[in-house]
Design a protein around this nucleic acid. Sequence first.
DNA 1: AAGGCGGGGTC
DNA 2: GACCCAGCCTT
Length: 360
Amino acid sequence: MKIAQLLLTWYEDFKRDLPWRRNKDPYRIWVSEIMLQQTRVEAVKPYFDRWMERFPDLKSLAEAEEEEVVRYWQGLGYYSRARNLLQGVREVNQSYGGQVPQTKEEVIGLAGVGDYTAGAILSIAYNKKEPAIDGNVLRVFSRLFCVEEDISSPAAKKNIKQLVADEMSEEQPGDFNQALMDLGSSICIPKTPRCALCPLADCCYAKRNGKEGQLPVKKKKAPPKAVRLIAGVIRQGEFYLLHQRPNKGLLAGMWEFPTVEIKEDGDPMDIFRQGIHKKTGQVIELERLLLQCTHIFSHRQWDISFHYCIVAPDRIVPNDEGLKWVNRRDWEKLSFAGPHRKMEKYLAEKNSQEIWQAFE
DNA sequence: AAGGCGGGGTC
DNA sequence: GACCCAGCCTT
């Protein structure tokens, strides 16, 4: 029996009930695919539902402010996805009359839409016969056909894309692509595949050769870099000093408590004072240090040791571009960088009274 | 071809 | 603690 038929039969019985599978609205498919880039289904679900409540259709998103759009992405990571999605949606709204285009060249030309996402949108929303090669499909097919190349290499992706194209269902390309992803996430999983439950076990070359546990081959990632940071929770009355990160790079455009990197050895507080001094032009009285706490954040790329200093300086005049005094009540309008979001919640729980009481 | 870009779940 | 996830963009 053909792979496509076995797969689709299995999919009919075991497909997941997901919010973005309720209908074939291209806009909804598009949003879901962007959110799902490098992000697990369970993490996306609540974000997708909130998103559709606020931006139910393409036009409502196209007319929204970027600041609000990014706020709805806060905590999901890879924030350029939100900005690219907004840009792409505005493009469709203006250049395509609000209708998501139906050709590969047009869709892939939209901001934030690459080869995979274009294939997913076209196959799922319009039932076009386009492959959608993601991590799941690479893993499944590297096993099915015993592809021993490093699947992160463009050459391997090209080869597997051809194999997928050869096996694709003519009538249900969208279901075929989604079935592959469901299979990859529940059966053909990274470490020890559950071959006993797999509808394709009989036609899997890796299993036939006893190599299902060794595939796919994937090059190792570089180890994370260690970084020491120190951040200041700096208050004057009801206002806190916050910093908006630059528009490019890590956590682009997100807000944070003013942060200084500790590069050399020495007293962290001393380095903090000097660094903040450069940003503010004013000296912080360290005698007014209220609380110091340390968080460790592990990350794929960064191993961050984070010191927080809660201080109450005499007088600070911001002279750094992104520095701004923000009323505590206005925080909900800002998008905080990950670690600082947790600190913000911590402050909200402790509430100002307990923390600042010693000073008043 | 390589590296940057988040955050969280799983084993 | 290592690994990985419905990838894309820049250099």
